[in-house]
Amino acid sequence: MSILVNKHTKILVQGITGVQASFHVQRALAMGTNIVSGVSPQRGGTKYFGVPVFNTVKEAITATKAEASVLFVPAMAVKSAVQEAVESGLKLAVTIAAGVPVRDMLEIKAMLKGSATTLIGPNTPGIITPKEACLGIFPENIHQPGNIGLVSRSSTLTYEATLEIDKAGFGQSTVIGLGDDMIIGTDFVDILKRFHEDDKTKTIVLIGKLGGMYEEIGAEFYAGLLHKKPVIAYIAGTTMPFDYKMGYAGDIITHGKITAERKRQAMRQAGMTVVENLSQISECLKTLK
């Protein structure tokens, strides 16, 4: 098992004919990802790496029963592409591009409310269930199937944490990057819930960072769980003085409470194991063996 995607998930790629998409689609196919269709306006009827291409998401779903989508569209086109995914009833959409305007994200969040779609991203490496499905831009050859669930709010730290899991001799059930942007589709709560419902996931590694209160909200949810799976958490940004991305405005909303130390406190109190340094993740995992 895994969460959100596995080898049976029928996947479509929005923006399949772009340069960056080509590189990553080829790699995803080589890994065995069940990519059933692609969407690219005006390219319908062609084939791309053997994958049939359609003009619209709806056409792609009708013809190929796609259930989940990965979006390789540029930031300025993300809003309309997500809208298409939501209106077509896809259960999952993963949007890779960075730099989606904040206002577009506010509109997207409103669209998602009450819809069937879970949005991961934007500005994320995506989701990978090793050796089964890759929706995103993960580095090659660092993922192993296993029973550690990994969820991270920082793209590149996702890779670091994956290497830590490998180093401890474990593998990953599913790896999810929530996205680096100011406003993201899915937060820790939803993913923690899914990992707890997944039989294969035995332990969860959570990577947080300075900015916003996603970690605190995740910790609060975890504290309320009756049966807790162990969570190992790391928070980046101890030496940064404040929410450097949102700065002043972010601090006004949270009353200046956004420090890495406060996040750690909240997570410890909720019952998570908090490590001070990334390289302690593997040591910590080894003690679980």
């Binding site: 920082s154 730290l157 680096d180 960072k209 030496t239 940064m240 890495a260 001070e276």
Partner: peptide, 22 residues
């Protein structure tokens, strides 16, 4: 030089742990 803000934050923390500053 990094590719990602999270890594930058994490590196600042690690450099600090080794007694230097970014």
């Amino acid at each position: 030089i990094v590719n990602g803000d999270g890594v930058a934050l994490s590196m600042a923390d690690m450099i600090n742990a080794y007694g230097e500053q970014m």
